[in-house]
Every structure is written in structure tokens, then in C-alpha cells.
Design a protein around this nucleic acid. Structure first.
Lengths: 162, 162
DNA sequence: ATATTCTTGACATAACTGATCAGCTTTACC
DNA sequence: GGTAAAGCTGATCAGTTATGTCAAGAATAT
């Protein structure tokens, strides 16, 4: 029962963006350096987050990514959901994964459907976890980081004007 | 973020034992048939559960497994913990896994240790999940199953006496 | 004795994870 | 309008984990 690094990196990266937010879009290069995440891998993750509507992007010089919503309207749940695809701890609830050949949706999950006590457990546990994650917004994290005394890095793109 | 089948099967099997508990030890054969779990695989899982002190076993004819404690003193948390090895959603907390060659324990987990907001999130989430699981005992599950009207299977070893 | 049942450890396969690479498109700016 | 700086897309790949199978052994009730 592990959270994939996609979720962990995703949350770290989004937090980093919120924490260091400036007037210009944030670039993969900088985020990956600060958070020690492989830039190539981060690109993939950001594509998922963009598809989920959490990020906007701008190409070209001075381009980069920016949060699609204010920091207090993006929760950890949103990010994990986008990165993980879903929050269910178990997929005996929602149908088996489709087979490569037939492309059939493969309806009835497990044969104990609705006659299984454990099904309820996993569903409730997933919901509890989701509820907790939804109470944590990027803004919350930023406030916590400030309390912890995490220093912000200056945007090197402003250095020229000093 | 998925629970491994080991946990799911483990909980199902332990519930099955509690629900169908008789005077004789329960056998892999019967449990695997009722719960539709590969008997070979279930053996492995039961070894883990036995090592964790949740099961007793007896070899030979009329042998099998029995719960090591009363059903209301075994929680889902115990089982998941035994099957999964741990409950942490993430291992940036407790040190990286050891390398095959050096066998070193590899201390300092991630370089952001204690300077990372997200670390707190995962640790708290793991704890929340564990707390929920610890409220669910096998006895609880049996009561729920009874309410749901799940029929119990008769022990075929008693059939001769009818 | 013998059949039954657990015990142990090796082995196999498929999927997933985490990551890398190459080549493309879009865009700001001179 | 050319060029360099970004993001975009899809292929690929090695290592790990998940999910089992198999074979041989040890204990025990009868």
C-alpha cells in the first residue's frame, strides 16, 4: 500500500510553485532543481496535472507552468487524484481493468459484489483518506512551510534588475 | 496507491475463519474455495499471518489453522500490518530500503527530512488509516455479515453425523 | 504405516514504476 | 522572419512488485 512517486512528486512540485510563485510562469528546470526531481519525469507528471485542469502552461521563452486556480482552491486530493488516476485503495469496487485485446470494460468487479463485508471497509477507508486530503490546500501547505521557516529561493530571472 | 492483494485476501480469509469457526481448525482447502483465493497463494499469506502471531496451525489430518486470539481482539489493522509489512503510505519517512550488496540500513531517508511539509501529510494520512483499521475487529465484521444476511456454509466434516 | 495437512523455498510471469531519450511544436524577442 | 527557449508527445527500458506455481519435506491423527 504505497503512494506512487507521481503523487508525492506532484504535491511537492505544486507546493513549490505556490511557495515560490512570482509574476512569471514557473519552469520545470527550476522546480526540478529545487525539489530534486528528474526534469524529464516532472514533465510527464505536469502533463497529467495539466490534463486534470490544475495547471496552465505557456510555451516559448519565459514560458512555463502556472497554477490554474488560486492556491487555496487546489487541494492535495486534487493533485493525488490527478496523478494517481483515482483514490480507491482497491479496485474490487469499480470493475476490473480492461483487457488489452478486447477493449471490453469488464463489468462486474468481483463475484462477491455487494455480498462482501470487506468491500465496505476499503471503500470507507478510501473515502476517509480522500476527506483528509481535501482539507489540505496548497495555501495551507505554504503557511505551514512558513512556520517551519523554509526559506524561499529568489527568482534568478529578476537578478538582472538589482 | 493500492492495497496489495495480500492484505485483501488476508482480511477476507481471516473473516471467513471467524465467520465459519467451528471446533476444528479451518483448512486452506475450504477457505480458498469459499473465498475464491488460490490455495497455494493463501498458504504464503497464512505463513505471514502466523509469523505475526495472528494464527496457530496444526499439521496432519484434521489439522489446519485457527485464530490465535478471540475474534474481537484481532483487528483489520493487525492483518494489514502483518500482510503489508507496514502501514506507511510512503517510505520517505523511515529510511530507504537496504541495498542488496551492502546490506546497509541506509539511514537518512530523503534529503528534505524534517524540512518538508509533505512528509507530515503522508505520515498523518498513514496514521488516520491505521486508526480506522484498528476500530474494525473480526467480530465487528461477523456482525455486519450477519446483518447483510450472508449465509454460513456448513462444515462438511460434520456431515457424516447427520 | 499411511494419508493428510502444514512448511519451506525456489521459480515464473506479467504488470507497474520511475526514468530517459529523441524529435516535435509553439512562441517571445531581436 | 530567424532563432533560441520553452513545453509536448511518444517510444523505450531497466528494475521492482504482484501474483501466483511447483516440488519436496516434516509432522501428526488414525
Amino acid at each position: 500500500m504505497k503512494l506512487s512517486t507521481k503523487s508525492r512528486y506532484g504535491v511537492r512540485a505544486m507546493f513549490d510553485m505556490a511557495y515560490h510563485a512570482g509574476t512569471l510562469p514557473a519552469q520545470i528546470k527550476d522546480i526540478s532543481r529545487r525539489q530534486q526531481i528528474s526534469p524529464r519525469y516532472l514533465e510527464q507528471i505536469f502533463q497529467d496535472l495539466k490534463k486534470a485542469g490544475l495547471l496552465n502552461s505557456r510555451r516559448g521563452p519565459q514560458g512555463g507552468y502556472s497554477l490554474a486556480r488560486p492556491a487555496d482552491e487546489i487541494t492535495v486530493k486534487d493533485i493525488v487524484l490527478a496523478a494517481e488516476g483515482e483514490l480507491e485503495l482497491v479496485n474490487c469496487v469499480k470493475g476490473l481493468r480492461k483487457t488489452k485485446d478486447t477493449d471490453e470494460e469488464a463489468g462486474a468487479a468481483c463475484q462477491f459484489d455487494n455480498r462482501c463485508v470487506t468491500q465496505h471497509i476499503w471503500r470507507d477507508a478510501s473515502r476517509i483518506l480522500g476527506d483528509y486530503f481535501s482539507t489540505l490546500s496548497l495555501k495551507t501547505l505554504c503557511e505551514q512551510a512558513k512556520e517551519m521557516g523554509l526559506e524561499k529561493e529568489l527568482d534568478h530571472r529578476f537578478m538582472y534588475f538589482i
